[in-house]
Each structure stands twice: as C-alpha cells, then as structure tokens.
Amino acid sequence: MITHNNIITSAAVLLMSTLLIPAQVAVGKGSVQNSSISLEFGNENRGMILPWVTNTGAVSGAVEGTVVYDLSDHKVKTKNISGWRDLSVDLTGTTIDPLNPAVDLVTIQNNVTTENLDAVVRIGTPTATPGILVLEDTNKAMILPRVASPHLNIINPAPGMMVYDTTAKQLAVFNGTVWSFWKP
C-alpha cells in the first residue's frame, strides 16, 4: 500500500540522489550567476526555512557555520567557536501559526514523518560533515533568497525563515513572531 510517508520518503531519496554529486545548484531559477556559488535561490518573496531542532544542546557534531531554529527558546542560532550565537534578538518567538493561533506548527512538523537520521543533501565534494544540507565546497558560497523588505512582502513567514533583505542590504531572520535584521 502506498502511503503519504512512502511518497515523501521516495521523493526525498530521489532528490538526495540527484544532489549527491559535485555541482552548483540553482533553486527557483535556471542557473547560478557565477562559478563562486554552490547554492543560489531565485528572486521571489520566499525564504529558506532552517532546520528545527529541539534545542542546540541536542545537536551533536555541529560545525562552525551551522544555522538552526531552536525550539526551546524560538530563536535562530548559528554555531561559532565559542558556542551558539543568537540571531533572533527578540524574546517573543513562537511556532504558533499566526493565521490559525490554535495550530502549533511543531506538532504538525513532528507528525508528518519519522526523521531519517541518515538523510543529507550534499553539494560539492562529499565529506563526513554532519547536517541536513551540507555545502561542501571550500571555494564557493551560498546566496540566500533575496527579498525586498521581507517583513512587508513575505505574507506568512515560517519560524526559522532566513533571507537577505535587498532593500536594507542585511540578513533577516524570522523567529515565529518578528523579524530580526543583521547588518555586517
């Protein structure tokens, strides 16, 4: 019998098998703009949703540069030498659906399927670095989805969403309640 979980698992295996080769990947557009890019997103009013983790203390083997959405305090965090750095700033994060406050998005996410701990998509030369999506190249970078004023143009952002704000020229992360902005 074909179930919803079997279809999701089959689609994930097909996607992962196509991305396990050294490559450059464009999502939502035809190609990347230059050879220094390993992953690039199209220019629509959409963001990249980070992996949700129970808490950063439960993440084993995280390497510097890992970025997650921490469900214990509803914050976007990045791993650096000294530990985890909070990118959300605001203390009011949530995973409650703003369009339907009776819905806890964590419950929906956890009930979809059982996590496959071996699931990983690698772009570049494969290594043993842990993660869900691992960009392996040492000489290429990822370009985040680029959105003009994401707080105005992304109608229903998900907790843990990250984009580059092309209007303010800064990183924007959504903690489930508000956007936080980071300028270099």
Rank of each mutant, 00 (worst) to 15 (best):
I2G: 12
T18H: 15
V25L: 15
E44S: 15
T3I: 11
N116F: 03
L171T: 10
M1R: 09
H151R: 13
A141E: 10
D73Y: 02
T92W: 05
F41L: 01
F174K: 06
A12S: 09
D104M: 02
S180L: 04
L144G: 01
V163P: 00
L152W: 07
K140P: 00
V13A: 15
D137E: 14
P184Q: 12
W52K: 03
A58K: 12
N116M: 13
L15C: 04
P130G: 04
I2H: 10
P150N: 02
N175C: 05
V13P: 01
A26C: 05
N34K: 07
I49W: 03
L135W: 02
L133S: 02
S35K: 06
N139D: 12
K169A: 15
V112Y: 08
P98W: 07
L71D: 05
H4Q: 15
P22N: 06
L14M: 13
I21P: 00
A141D: 13
D137V: 03
T114D: 12
G93H: 01
V89M: 09
Q33K: 10
I132V: 13
D165M: 04
H74R: 07
S149L: 14
G176Y: 03
K183Y: 10
V163R: 00
R46C: 13
P22M: 10
S17T: 13
